[in-house]
Design a protein around this nucleic acid. Structure first.
Lengths: 164, 164
DNA sequence: AATTAGAGTAACAAGAAAAGTTGCATGAAA
DNA sequence: TTTCATGCAACTTTTCTTGTTACTCTAATT
């Protein structure tokens, strides 16, 4: 089953953007997650509308965070993406007049909205800075053995620090 | 986004089957939910394997419940369908060596498995008989005004009670 | 025995949704 | 004025689910 990986992807990219001094282009972001720049732009539109990021055109343009990571929760990103549907389980509407079907829908709706509430509450309680510090901890644990390149390769490819 | 409506559909059908004296054919069930008999058979295979229903071939064959509704929970049906994926939210695997991506995956996995636990626990606590009695209550509330046909039309089309 | 009615199953077609791609317009900096 | 970037629309590709067809096997009825 095909799942929406935009939340996961944008969290990943937003944290990388925070570590970058300059605006990051869609091209650059696309390479980090092995996709096409247009896919990135499409995904970022929602984040821009809700004020999580901003974009600049032309020379030196690209994407920057509009808020510090500590002021962005997973719920903010989730909602900004317009990801309305959390569950993969759907309510059949095969025979709308049937009271049996309605009773089924009602019970399933109850159960699912309870669980959705739990998920969204978790999301609301997690800030991007929490994830970033998890990352820093892991990175520090690796010590100076940086040969493993434990981050996205394009992260180092800023103008000041060209790779290859 | 396309959601899996098999859970909803099979609950609906299982409750109708319970109200039927005889085995119900795939054809009959298919008409109730406006689909093809093969789709029904496919869906029922899992339920059969886990002993929720049984099937008979040939004349007078069809599907019957193998257990009373009170001994079947939503979780039983959910698992029997092999519906492993509960969420529509996926974990990107764009750059597996990246520690940022890993930190994101870890946090999302935590949040999602907590919510999944809540959902499955709800499912475990709801028996099909609970839904059936909700339905009976609604049906009784309608009184004798049965002209609205508040159930699937093919429900009445048993041999003993032919319609049209 | 022949017929009819059903499940079981494999292979294929249709549909839908997300992801990816291309091309071009627009705007900003060099 | 050229270059580099986003913005956007249209199209293609991919992938998954659902639906469909055709056939086999089995059991009851006639």
């Amino acid at each position: 089953m095909r799942r929406d990986s935009r939340l996961s992807r944008s969290l990943h990219l937003l944290i990388h953007m925070d570590r970058f001094p300059d605006p990051v282009t869609s091209d650059h972001l696309a390479k980090m997650v092995a996709t096409n720049p247009v896919v990135i732009r499409r995904m970022m539109q929602g984040l821009k509308k809700t004020g999580l990021v901003s974009s600049g055109k032309g020379h030196g343009g690209g994407w920057v965070l509009a808020k510090p990571l500590a002021e962005i929760t997973l719920l903010d990103v989730h909602e900004a993406l317009g990801a309305t549907v959390v569950f993969n389980i759907g309510l059949a509407d095969d025979n709308p007049q049937c009271l049996v079907e309605r009773a089924v829908r009602e019970k399933l709706t109850q159960a699912m909205s309870e669980a959705e509430g739990v998920l969204l509450q978790s999301f609301a309680s997690i800030r991007l800075s929490d994830i970033a510090s998890d990352f820093e901890t892991q990175l520090a644990a690796l010590g100076s053995d940086q040969n493993r390149l434990p981050i996205c390769i394009p992260e180092r490819a800023s103008k000041a620090d060209q790779v290859d």
